[in-house]
């Protein structure tokens, strides 16, 4: 991303560059949590996990299938499948642009 994009909207920078070593693009990196505006919280996953996590054997099996058995996060997202990703797609709620004023 171009630096000018950041500088155009500094009030929305929650983590200043000073404390960042790298920025890596990971689509659906927060799943089963959400990223506002991009995908929803996967509540079905949390409900499933609530039941599954009571049994250590099932947790082990889940980890083998969904974590250790996959090459990377992109494979995890592919395994989630388009139906899940479609279900998590939010509607649009675009905020209008902001006039910050240029104080030269």
């Amino acid at each position: 991303m171009d630096e000018s994009v950041i500088r155009a909207d500094p009030n929305r920078t929650l983590i200043p560059g000073l404390v960042v070593d790298a920025v890596v693009r990971v689509p659906y990196g927060a799943h089963p949590s959400y990223v506002q505006g991009y995908y929803d919280r996967d509540n079905e996953f949390y409900l499933m996990w609530d039941v599954l996590s009571r049994d250590p054997e099932r947790v082990g099996a889940w980890l083998d299938e969904w974590v250790y058995g996959l090459s990377d996060h992109a494979a995890y997202v592919r395994k989630l499948g388009t139906e899940t990703l479609q279900r998590l797609k939010p509607g649009s709620a675009l905020a209008p642009g902001v006039e910050y004023g240029a104080y030269r």
């Binding site: 506002q36 929803d40 509540n43 409900l47 709620a93």
Partner: peptide
């Protein structure tokens, strides 16, 4: 919301 961390709380 299923959790206090549900984005439906933020909308609006």
């Amino acid at each position: 919301p299923l959790s206090i961390g549900d984005p439906t709380l933020v909308t609006g």
